[in-house]
Design a protein around this nucleic acid. Structure first.
Lengths: 356, 356
DNA sequence: GAAAATTTGATGTACGTAAATCAAAAAATA
DNA sequence: TATTTTTTGATTTACGTACATCAAATTTTC
């Protein structure tokens, strides 16, 4: 039988009330007594029954999720997953609020983080922007003992508790490796399409991709990075121009969003199927393009897994418990048209999405 | 606030005791009263607080895991993951026992299933063998209202509640697609190495692989399947013979276990790096071979995820609750040397493994 | 319509923890 | 030593559900 608070009291030779004071860090216990109790806890291997404790406290976990606004399909899919988690709130004892802030706007994000801190939630999950002010805002939360998990995009140098997202350098390397092998004997330069070099995950993917291409497939020249700002219309124009400027393009790695524009440009080119295309995030658009052969591979991060993982980790941190490391590792999924999961499982918004 | 049993009593105009009788299907309630209570439950949207119920009942979930014995690295890794789950038992209220039975032996498996039934656990997870007697044994468990989850290898035609494993046809198709693309312009036949055609997952992988190769890469002849019985020594001998018989082999798809033998044969051949090799399951051996370039890609199923998923599903079934579909989908991981996870995350036995 | 059988209600205890109150004991201070 | 302050103990209620007991009410049976 698992030891209870009564067992601690017996083992330490104190009363239940004292054990409670120690366990819940209440005042009025002499240091010697406190140590006696703590040693008893250690000795008999007591672990608090979180379910019983939560029942007694009628505890709920108020969490704040801070996401970028805008019509980026992946982010809207992420939000849909948070809403799915909200629909499970009664079972999971969570009270989740969603805050959206303009993308690529550090000031807005800092404001949102500080507002979140004001309501002192049990935890905050945030899609981070890589800037010193944001780091400072996150560290303010941590200084107030509020657990913070970064979601999708990490915040190096901050004191965040955990990152729920993929290893983007590895993702870029994987894309490079697939690109090189898929091109096989074919020659021709390779283009890279990014959203913005101001975003950390995009930079990391690019670094990984470049490293592998230079290392293992030096025969392919790398064209200058096209920055499409994750905007489908801009992407379509820039890619079309790139096709005109370098008709011999052999491959395209799209490491950001706005793939709807890329797909449109490929369709207009017509002979697009000879170009090897690798893109990120499985959305309705990339899925369709994969199925008809316009895209050769899609690297994906499972937004549902990321959200559920963030919640599990925030709960564990709030309770001071350990997490199962392997369970919280977010995989880089590689989708070919042969291993596409059923529709409901991709990072889709439930309603009609406009862009990707 | 979430409604409680008291709310049901008030809403139905009956006493708490009657509500309890209905909720826990105890005798002594007239049909009209029972219906009145059930309608109230429906109306106010009551959902039992499983945590409180488990506390009151001091409930534990006794589960039985039935796994094949033998020195197959993947299966031993699976067992290690079950042991990891056992180490979390006190937190998860589980009492898990592991039963190992000789591989590929339907009679032994049937005996194990019937023994499991005799102790009437809260659920059974089993690595299935595809045979009518096993189907019957599983259905006997289900007839006794014991939830059953098949693990890794499914049991079509049975009444099992859930399958915790990958879509093996998709895995085979993915392997075919990667093989065809990785081979690029190169010519030459492709060999397939399997454990045994008596096992369902192996058959399905082969079917998927053949389908894609014939459909999309008809230029490559497919050599007859080599059945290595998942035995490293036999595999090494058969592969070496195959190299001698067809020196022009361009690719090998290893869809079963025993990869240690394949790797040894490739090493002896020396010029192995020109052969495209795709294998299943990330073990210490396949990981090393991937890193040095002897293997080009490894398709993997995460044993830890499979075990945790099986436990979650068995609990949910035991409690009559729904599961989060997407969370229980087991992915086909594709590993290149560029996206290998850290060591601790692969399907490894903690101690020294002998085969794969 | 009375007796027997069934159904329903009222009540209490339990699960493991949290949290509060008040009295008793111990320690610190004068 | 007397007084004040701090520490500790004893006890109770609560969280939401399970489960048992016994009495009261209702229905069924003869």
């Amino acid at each position: 039988m698992r030891p209870t608070v009564h067992d601690i009291a017996a083992a330490a030779g104190v009363s239940l009330a004292t054990v409670d004071r120690v366990l819940n860090q209440r005042a009025g216990v002499r240091t010697v007594t406190r140590e006696k109790v703590e040693q008893a806890i250690e000795r008999i291997g007591y672990v608090r029954d979180v379910a019983a404790a939560n029942l007694a406290k009628s505890r709920v976990y108020p969490f704040v999720f801070i996401l970028p606004s805008g019509d980026n399909s992946f982010m809207r899919g992420l939000e849909a997953q948070v809403r799915a988690a909200i629909s499970r709130s009664t079972f999971e004892r969570t009270v989740i609020s969603i805050v959206t802030v303009p993308a690529f706007n550090p000031e807005a994000l800092v404001a949102a983080l500080d507002e979140a801190r004001a309501v002192s939630p049990a935890g905050v999950a945030v899609v981070a922007i890589d800037s010193p002010e944001v780091i400072a805002a996150v560290d303010r939360l941590r200084a107030g003992r509020i657990p913070v998990v970064t979601l999708v995009s990490d915040l190096a140098g901050s004191k965040r508790d955990h990152f729920a997202g993929v290893d983007n350098i590895a993702a870029g390397r994987t894309a490079g490796s697939l690109m090189g092998r898929f091109l096989g004997g074919r020659s021709g330069p390779v283009a890279v399409l990014a959203g913005s070099m101001l975003v950390r995950d995009h930079r990391e993917r690019l670094d990984g991709f470049h490293a592998v291409m230079k290392e293992s497939f030096p025969g392919h020249a790398l064209l200058p990075v096209i920055e499409g700002q994750d905007d489908p219309a801009l992407v379509e124009r820039l890619v079309t121009e790139a096709f005109a400027a370098s008709p011999e393009i052999a491959g395209i790695y799209s490491l950001g969003a706005g793939n709807r524009g890329l797909i449109a440009a490929l369709q207009r080119k017509g002979d697009g199927s000879t170009i090897c295309v690798i893109a990120h995030e499985l959305t309705r658009h990339t899925r369709a393009a994969l199925n008809v052969g316009l895209i050769d591979a899609v690297l994906n991060q499972d937004a549902g897994h990321e959200v559920r993982s963030a919640i599990r980790v925030l709960k564990a941190k709030a309770d001071g418990l350990a997490v199962i490391g392997a369970q919280e590792r977010i995989r880089i999924d590689i989708f070919l048209k042969d291993n596409l999961p059923f529709d409901q499982d991709s990072n889709q918004e439930p309603e009609q999405g406009r862009a990707d």
